[in-house]
């Protein structure tokens, strides 16, 4: 999966905006939105929020977790624990990136948030690499991956799955007579 496709899925999350225009309720296929009144906060999907923001038709209210203090706590917890801690949003990385790229003027302390989220991400990816390493070296057949986000899974997917398949191929060829040995996918 391409990471832009993960971002595409992240854009379905809702975010609060404060519009500066008025518009009746919209009946989209995926659900109703609005009505929009100037100054009144309303929930919209991120793709629409970003579009409206780029046309300077709204102000985006950052999600509650996008806050320096909360993120600092998270970072400490993430560094302390050996396992993956629960994340505030299943698309925290993508949302941070999207909102900070297009609406950094609506988000207080944008630079600090960017650094914090990056720190959390780096810590988690380091853990992910470690667990992938032990998964492979112990020849495990099953792993539980709670609290991992789609983007995190996606960064390791191609490499991990291909290596597992290769190793499986090599191993099944080592055991002569096993019916699983007929690997033809190359």
């Amino acid at each position: 999966m391409d990471s832009s496709e993960v971002e595409f899925l992240a854009e379905k999350e809702t975010v609060k905006i404060i519009p500066n225009f008025s518009l009746d309720r919209i009946y989209l296929i995926g659900g109703d939105l609005g009505p929009f009144n100037p100054g009144l906060p309303v929930d919209v999907p991120v793709w629409l929020a970003l579009n409206l923001k780029q046309r300077q038709k709204c102000r985006i209210v950052p999600p509650a977790w996008m806050d320096v203090e909360k993120l600092e706590e998270m970072r400490e917890l993430e560094r302390k624990e050996d396992t993956f801690t629960p994340v505030p949003s299943p698309y925290y990385m993508e949302l941070t990136k999207l909102l900070l790229n297009y609406a950094s003027d609506n988000i207080p302390k944008a630079d600090e948030i960017r650094t914090l989220v990056k720190d959390i991400w780096d810590t988690r990816i380091a853990k992910l690499r470690l667990s992938a390493d032990s998964f492979i070296s112990q020849l495990e057949a099953h792993a539980k991956l709670d609290n991992l986000t789609l983007m995190e899974i996606n960064t390791i997917r191609a490499f991990l799955l291909d290596s597992l398949n290769c190793m499986y191929k090599l191993r099944s060829n080592l055991q002569p007579g096993s019916s699983k040995g007929q690997f033809t996918d190359y």
């Binding site: 020849l139 057949a141 099953h142 792993a143 991992l148 055991q175």
Partner: peptide, 20 residues
Amino acid sequence: ETDDQREYVVDLEEGSQHLM
């Protein structure tokens, strides 16, 4: 994965994520 390992069962809880 290998002959010297034993097979085992897991329960898949709702909402959990797995690699298998």
